[in-house]
Simulated assay, not measured.
Amino acid sequence: MSPKQYKIKVGISIGDYNGIGPEIIMKSLKDKSITDFFTPIIFGSGKLFTYQKNIFKLQHNFNYITEVAQAQDDKINMVNLWKDNVNVNLGTPTEESTRMAIDSLEAATNALINGEIDVLVTAPINKEEMMKHGFQHAGHTGYLEEKFGKKGLMFLVTNDLKVAVSTHHIPLASVAENISKEKIKKQIKLLNQCLIEDFCIERPKIAVLGLNPHAGDGGTIGREEIEIIEPAIRELFDNGVLAFGPYPADSYFQPGKYKNFDAVLAMYHDQGLAPFKTLAYEEGVNYTAGLPYVRTSPDHGVAYDIAGKNIADEQSFTEAIFMAIKIFNNRKEYNDLITNRMQPRRSSSANSPDEDLPVDRA
């Protein structure tokens, strides 16, 4: 198959099936032409999805397989991880649904590492329940960082708004002690490179928010801006990275301000995600930037309160699929460009005849 004909293999983990995971997955794949664009590979259970597709009156035909190598390009493929009957209790997490969420994520992640799938899209999980059953991380990001051996950055994106957060799932009381000049420098550089490679922005402009109200008000409401954040920004700017700030978070997310930048680095989870989810809830995508593999997810949770009611909106999950494909293609194009640029050119000198010219053998 030529590169032009190659269809990207999108691996999908199902999350907690007592939430809205299977519903939004199936709704995102309901268009019969969807396999013209990519090859879906769900790491789940045939019996579970058959049960739930009947609840939502969806007409999917799955290609049940036991390993990824059996996937077909023109099918919605289901790696059948569990062949036994599944107890479904929509709206309530159970030990069975939690363990399946862990198993699905691990199988999909291993397939990504082994090159069996190209990108990973993860349905929502219940972090608290998973940790009760042996999962060691407060979310996908920490898990993927450990699996891939590299630090990532939580990055919420749409076409117009891109928000990264410096500290992820930690208590608010621990935020100040978890930021440093060197950490912020690394994150801004990572974000800058991600915008270049994954989003094709040649010279990204990055805004950085302050930690304290009014960005510290010149040191009267905290000195983190003066002692940590501003020096990091200034040092990077002096070395060619277009980083600006620190800006007060309470006024940054006005359309006339944030649209002047390509991305923003917030200092903590709610500082960045609360405005993001307000401005871009239905179309937002959670992307783990800086990892060697592409992983996206919708920007919402398991939504137990609406599970089984057939009212879950799949738009964010659909956006996550196509954002993963777009980033994969952008990254490949960038790497191909860099590789070609680095190819040594054959040099000619006055003492070496050009191969295209006739040689006088007289």
Rank of each mutant, 00 (worst) to 15 (best):
Q5Y: 09
I8E: 11
G15Y: 02
D16H: 10
I25D: 00
D31K: 08
I34G: 03
T39N: 05
I42L: 00
G44E: 02
S45P: 06
F62T: 15
Y64S: 12
N77V: 00
N80K: 03
N87S: 14
L90Y: 07
G91A: 08
G91D: 06
G91C: 04
T94W: 05
R99M: 09
I117M: 01
H133E: 14
G139T: 06
L144V: 07
F148R: 08
V157C: 04
E177R: 15
K183Y: 04
L190C: 10
L191T: 05
E197N: 13
P204Y: 09
G210Q: 10
G218Y: 12
G219I: 02
T220E: 05
E224R: 13
E227Y: 07
A232F: 06
D238M: 13
F244K: 05
F244S: 05
A249P: 03
D250R: 01
S251A: 09
F253K: 01
G256K: 12
K259R: 15
L265M: 11
M267V: 00
K277E: 11
T278H: 12
L279E: 10
T296F: 00
S297C: 10
Y304T: 02
A312Y: 02
I321W: 02
M323L: 05
A324Q: 09
I325A: 03
I338H: 11
N351V: 13
N351G: 12
A362M: 14
